[in-house]
């Protein structure tokens, strides 16, 4: 298969970027999208052109490192799929493919297709944990957890922190990401103790990082590679509302 790639190139955070056109020739349908980029990069390097920089690591859909907007859709056209799990068999021979970085105020471009997502880490640092020191845990089976709670919590915990939800949202909102963490922990008895403070601090940190508001467009769920449900956003909204009426912990 052959493709015409239109790729965002940007040398550094300060410089202005532009789209460049590169041919991708002799691509096998069973290649992954990133393997196709590898092939293009090998070609560029041998012509003395600097290869296209893009983030990736596990290449099996779990680390959350890969992040490309492909033909306008974060992680490309397949549902519940990361870019690294996308295969060229899903594209048409001769197709034009536009490849851009995540675009959001809170995710500045570092180079080409690589963005800085450290804002997500700071939101977690603000409260996305259970405050238990090593060694102070009780015997694991002391506290039974209803299976459906554990399962629902796991649905939320499956978030890989890739940022596609932000990239897909016209307001660049991080609600799905934050809601997933608030729900993962809040649905378990171990996480209830701090539920009130957690939602307050995480929402505050989210606003400080410059993420936008949620206006219920649900683009986030549509692109989420782990198909995390927007129902967690309503769960978080309820948690937030509840926490605003509760007296602060003393």
């Amino acid at each position: 298969m052959d493709f015409e790639l239109h790729v965002w190139r940007q040398k550094s955070p300060k410089e202005k970027g532009r789209m460049e056109v590169y041919p991708a020739k002799g691509i096998h349908a069973d290649m992954s999208f990133l393997e196709m980029l590898d092939v293009v990069n090998e070609g560029l390097a041998s012509q003395g052109v600097e290869p296209i920089a893009f983030d990736h690591d596990c290449r099996e859909g779990i680390c959350g490192m890969c992040s490309l907007v492909i033909n306008g859709i974060p992680h490309g056209p397949e549902r519940a799929t990361t870019t690294c799990e996308l295969y060229m068999r899903h594209f048409k021979d001769g197709q034009k493919i536009f490849i851009e970085p995540w675009r959001a105020r809170a995710f500045p471009v570092l180079k080409d297709l690589i963005v800085d997502r450290s804002a997500f880490d700071r939101v977690i640092q603000a409260g996305g944990y259970v405050s238990v020191n090593t060694g102070s845990a009780p015997e694991a089976n002391t506290l039974p957890v209803p299976k459906d709670c554990a399962e629902l919590s796991m649905d939320a915990a499956a978030c890989i922190g890739c940022g596609a939800c932000v990239a897909a949202c016209k307001n660049a909102s991080a609600m799905l990401f934050v809601a997933a963490k608030v729900s993962h922990l809040g649905l378990l008895p171990q996480g209830r103790v701090e539920a009130r403070d957690r939602v307050q601090s995480m929402v505050k940190a989210m606003d400080q990082e410059g993420f936008g508001n949620c206006t219920n467009q649900y683009e986030c769920e549509a692109v989420c590679p782990k198909a995390i449900s927007v129902s967690f956003i309503s769960l978080m909204n309820r948690e937030y509302l509840k926490s605003s009426f509760q007296p602060p912990a003393v």
Binding site: Y129, V130, V132, T134, G135, S136, A137, P138, E139, A140, L143, A150, E151, S153, M154, A157, H184, L185, L188, Q190, G191
Partner: peptide, 9 residues
């Protein structure tokens, strides 16, 4: 024990 206390589902 530790992981359960941290909220590992």
């Amino acid at each position: 024990d530790q992981c359960v206390a941290q909220g590992v589902p």
